[in-house]
């Protein structure tokens, strides 16, 4: 005589939908915890390195000579470079695992750019001016301003970092026809390798191949992986035009219907 199998009698290989969902949820939770733990494990030791280096350099722990002071300044500067990489790697992992969610709200694009402009501090070691070019009547749109800001900050930082002389221009326009906002970060001296240009611009390019990650992470591409991924979760895209001797322009397009004011 046959009777329906009870749950515990099912073979081990057959999992119920509920079990599978539970397992997926658990896996996501583990990923999240992993990133939090990695953040702590990577940042905490640097706190001691940078904290003591800064105190010794400022002579809080006793006199030091000029040569020692210079050496400590180098230690601090390199520790900062490392911190930047740690930040990018952790954030890229969070993006990759789907951990990063978008939170849209209505923002005035003009106010947003004014804000970015006034909070931007140029590099301390370079005389540098950024040229800002955007109309004051840019509309109010609904988007995730934190992520948009991060994208633009990344691009500006990259441009300034690798531009020895010349200038960096940030321009923005809104096009009512396509309901998109377009931001351009242009510099006058960086030459982006062809493969990197392709890796950024190809929409269909698999973001999970290690080759792409390497291209967008190494050297000049540092952080472009995050820019591309972030633009994608905002529903937009990034492309780059680069000409030897003339510089490069990164173009970020973000969808957003203008909200009537």
């Amino acid at each position: 005589m046959s009777r329906p199998l009870k749950a515990e009698e099912k073979s081990a290989g057959e999992k119920t939908l509920e079990q599978k969902i539970l397992e997926l949820e658990r896996a996501n939770q583990v990923k999240k915890e992993f990133l939090t733990i990695m953040s702590r494990e990577l940042r905490t030791p640097l706190n001691t390195v940078m904290g003591y280096t800064a105190m010794i350099k400022e002579k809080l722990l006793g006199e030091i000579n000029a040569q020692q002071e210079k050496a400590l300044a180098k230690v601090l500067s390199r520790a900062n470079d490392q911190l930047r990489i740690i930040q990018s790697v952790l954030y890229a992992s969070a993006l990759e695992s789907g951990e990063v969610k978008t939170e849209n709200h209505e923002i005035s694009l003009a106010d947003f750019l004014d804000n970015l402009r006034s909070s931007y501090k140029g590099p301390l070691d370079k005389e540098f001016k950024i040229h800002w070019d955007y109309p004051s009547d840019l509309p109010v749109v609904s988007t995730d301003s934190l992520k948009l800001r991060q994208i633009l900050e990344h691009l500006i930082e990259n441009a300034v970092r690798f531009t020895a002389k010349g200038r960096v221009t940030l321009s923005a326009r809104y096009s009512p026809g396509t309901k998109t906002a377009e931001f351009k970060v242009a510099d006058t001296s960086i030459e982006i390798p062809k493969e990197v240009v392709q890796a950024i611009s190809e929409k269909s390019r698999q973001m999970d191949s290690s080759e792409t990650i390497l291209l967008l992470y190494g050297g000049v591409g540092l952080g472009l992986y995050i820019v591309k991924k972030s633009a994608a979760i905002l529903g937009g895209e990034v492309r780059v035009e680069s000409e030897p001797g003339k510089g490069s322009t990164f173009i970020v397009t973000i969808p957003g219907e203008a909200v009537p004011s």
Partner: peptide, 8 residues
């Protein structure tokens, strides 16, 4: 403030 930070 995020770790790492300095006394400043």
């Amino acid at each position: 403030i995020a770790k790492p930070f300095t006394h400043t």
